[in-house]
């Protein structure tokens, strides 16, 4: 049973066909959840008595920041799978996760900076979370850059996997050191965290949007992986049959 499962995931064709269905499901779930969560967050959730309407940025910023970190973790897991079992699909997953993760990371940084303007009076402060998110973006960028510079795609995948794992081991250390550095240098007045507990009408849309962005990320990763699988398997018979059926 376990062997069959392993065998399936090793088959690009099986993945390509199955992921088509997963991709569609994830896409529709994302559209519905994001529509509900965003409209709720923007127009129905009560206004924050301290920050006013600017707090509504939370319904994009928090889910996207979550995802930027979760996708790095997923990429590190895929890296371990690639190095231990040499599963080609894990390499494809890493490649897709890096690009989607980087985009989410940039979005988290940009939304954080824009939120900073009304809250802190400036677009950028060297806040612990903004700083570690910036470093996460650099780590993503390093992995994308390394892959694009390598000549041999097989070597590129494994080199990226080693880098992703070293980065994953380092990431908690980076996070703690940045937090410690921040307490050393800044008065703790500029935090978004120390607020009274949110009422349900505020956190329910946040939860919906977190699920929605997870689904959106799943859609993007599956869609990207399918394109990459097709390209990598372009010499395989099943791809030729499939593509022949397209015209």
């Amino acid at each position: 049973m376990a062997w069959r499962w392993f065998h399936q995931w090793g088959s690009p064709r099986w993945f390509y066909e199955r992921a088509s269905r997963w991709q569609a499901w994830a896409g529709w779930i994302a559209v519905i959840l994001l529509a509900v969560g965003t409209v709720w967050g923007l127009a129905i959730a009560p206004v924050d008595y301290q920050q006013g309407h600017s707090y509504r940025i939370i319904y994009l910023h928090v889910p996207v920041s979550f995802l930027a970190q979760a996708l790095y973790l997923a990429m590190a897991i895929a890296a371990a799978v690639l190095l231990v079992w040499r599963m080609k699909l894990a390499d494809v997953a890493m490649q897709s996760l890096a690009i989607v993760g980087f985009a989410f990371c940039v979005l988290a940084l940009a939304s954080g900076a824009i939120w900073g303007k009304p809250t802190w009076g400036t677009y950028w402060v060297w806040d612990a979370r903004l700083t570690s998110m910036l470093i996460l973006a650099f780590l993503y960028l390093g992995i994308i850059g390394l892959r694009s510079a390598m000549l041999d795609p097989n070597t590129a995948g494994k080199a990226c996997a080693i880098l992703a794992l070293v980065g994953a081991i380092n990431l908690p250390i980076i996070k703690y050191s940045v937090e410690w550095w921040n307490t050393l240098h800044q008065p703790a007045s500029l935090t978004l965290t120390e607020k009274p507990a949110m009422p349900a009408s505020m956190w329910v849309p946040l939860l919906i949007n977190i699920c929605g962005y997870y689904a959106a990320a799943a859609y993007l990763v599956f869609a990207s992986m399918r394109g990459l699988v097709l390209h990598r398997e372009r010499r395989a018979q099943w791809v030729r049959e499939l593509v022949g059926a397209h015209d």
């Binding site: 470093i135 960028l141 980076i174």
Partner: peptide, 20 residues
């Protein structure tokens, strides 16, 4: 080692890990 133009790439890849 296997990169086409390694030049500054290694530096860019490694610098964020130096943060701690």
């Amino acid at each position: 080692l296997g990169a086409a133009r390694s030049g500054v790439l290694g530096v860019l890849v490694m610098l964020p890990l130096f943060v701690p």
